[in-house]
Design a protein around this nucleic acid. Structure first.
Lengths: 144, 144
DNA sequence: AAATAATTGAAAATTATTTTCATTTAGACA
DNA sequence: TGTCTAAATGAAAATAATTTTCAATTATTT
């Protein structure tokens, strides 16, 4: 189920995007991690392999990859922008370690029933939801 | 259960804060609304009653009021900062109309079971969660 | 009424992100 | 393979949101 390099390449081309070394470098950094990263953090890491890349390019690349559904955004307290490779292709949510940023995906959010009840009670037509769980992973429990 | 002016005044003083006209003006705007407002929106409204107030003061007041637990933050897409008078004193969440910003509070988030299961499966120690539901209120359904 | 610590507003500073624009380049095609 | 063109890049400037600094003001305590 994992996205191969070829599939990503094809997906970009299908949408009229080019496959640049800079985009590969960004994908390369993000896809090997299980934690969420801000644009600035991605920039730092990509710069090591690809010095001279501009932070603007990171922003633009993240926008494109998110548009293609390859990335997930994570909210977390404070700043709102942090990204992560999208792993499940279906609707899912994130369990996030507040210590190290590691993210575990889960797919059953158990909100249907709640949404139906609230819809009945309030007359709202439900559209979407934002759900993130926070905790400490086993490793960070030891440290703390 | 509603917070009276006196209670708010006492709460501020207990924490060494002063009761200024500017703070009253901000509270006055927020407490009469059922939708969430950004600092800039609050500034606009407060300015009408209290011209000459600085946007900085809005930011500082919101920080103080949030620290005292009188306000809730709402996340919503895009910008991360939007505030709302805190109504239930207990743990609760928000159902938000994407049309008009109206917010309905609900207290049973039904996540305990999910959290327990994920904790068992992943070894994470659960700490907190972020949950917001989005939809359209009855009024906004008519309009759209 | 005086003393004092907190608060205010203006302006400057910071941070995050976006826009502009001239230059370069990936991919299509001759 | 070389040429062409639209897309992408990077530098710099622009924008937006928020925070800091600081001198002047004011709410509360005494």
């Amino acid at each position: 189920m994992k996205l191969t390099a070829n599939k990503i390449a094809g997906l970009l081309r299908q949408h009229g995007y080019k496959l640049t070394p800079q985009r590969w470098a960004v994908l390369n950094v993000i896809s090997h991690r299980h934690d969420h990263l801000t644009p600035a953090a991605i920039y730092d890491r990509v710069s090591q392999e690809h010095p001279g890349i501009g932070l603007v390019t990171i922003y633009r690349t993240l926008e494109v990859l998110a548009e293609l559904g390859l990335l997930c955004k994570v909210h977390v307290e404070g700043g709102c922008r942090s990204y992560l490779m999208r792993r499940p292709s279906v609707h899912h949510h994130h369990l996030i370690c507040s210590g190290c940023g590691r993210v575990v995906d889960f797919t059953d959010c158990a909100l249907n029933e709640l949404e139906q009840r609230l819809s009945r009670e309030t007359g709202f037509e439900m559209k979407d939801h934002l759900l993130e769980l926070y905790g400490h992973c086993q490793n960070c429990q030891k440290i703390a």
